[in-house]
Simulated scan of single mutants.
Amino acid sequence: MAIKSKPRAGKKPPTKSSTEMIFGPEVYGHGYTGVPNIMVRAQARLGLAPVQFNILVQLLSYYYDPAKPPFPTKRELRNRMKIADSTLKKHLKELETAGLIDRVQRVTAEGDYGSNVYRLDGLIRKLRQLAPEFDQEREDRVERKRIVETPKGRRSVR
């Protein structure tokens, strides 16, 4: 039986994130992957096929530290996605050609080839370029809501 500790006087108990509240601690406790909403909403504008989007999400799931780009093996990626080696290679090449990822071959201390390091700088740069458009869309949406919700006699001209 677990013993619950009482919060100390004057200290608030830690609040749960909305993600933890939605999925529950048993799921949230295994971690989560940060996928920017701009990437989700601009999938078509970025020219991402569903498999390519999935590859990027898989790579993001390995990206814990900004100083250490992800370096999963192709086998790990294929197994997670249940796709053929040729499918993975084709889409990685297309992501690289589109400037969204850069692959750098790792070499082990023994001189053997290791897994690729996947640099996502191109993806990050493109998402940052799209951010002002999404900022404007949000501002326009807030303004339209304000106008619709304000009685006509009280609307001020801006």
Rank of each mutant, 00 (worst) to 15 (best):
E96G: 01
A67I: 01
A109F: 00
L60T: 04
L88N: 01
R75N: 12
K74Y: 15
R80F: 00
D102T: 14
L92P: 03
P70R: 11
L92E: 05
F71G: 01
P70H: 08
E96S: 06
L92S: 04
A109K: 08
S61I: 08
T87H: 10
G111H: 00
K74Q: 13
I83G: 04
L100I: 04
E96A: 02
Y63C: 03
D65G: 00
L100H: 09
P72I: 14
V107G: 05
D112R: 08
A98G: 05
F71Q: 11
R75M: 15
A98L: 11
L100C: 03
K89A: 13
R75P: 08
K82H: 13
G99F: 05
Y62N: 05
L77Q: 14
P72D: 10
T97S: 15
T73V: 06
K74V: 05
F71A: 07
L100T: 10
T73A: 14
I83D: 01
K74A: 11
K82C: 12
R78K: 15
V107R: 06
K82G: 08
L59H: 11
T73M: 12
R103L: 13
S61C: 12
H91N: 12
E76H: 13
R80I: 00
T97F: 06
K82R: 14
Y64P: 00
N79Q: 15
G99N: 11
I101W: 07
Q105T: 06
Y62L: 06
T73Y: 08
R103D: 02
L77K: 02
S86I: 14
Q105G: 04
K68P: 01
R103I: 04
P66S: 05
L100M: 13
R78Y: 07
D65W: 09
L77Y: 12
L59D: 09
G99C: 09
E94R: 09
Y63I: 09
A84G: 07
K93P: 01
L77H: 07
A67W: 03
L88P: 00
E76V: 14
T87V: 10
T73H: 07
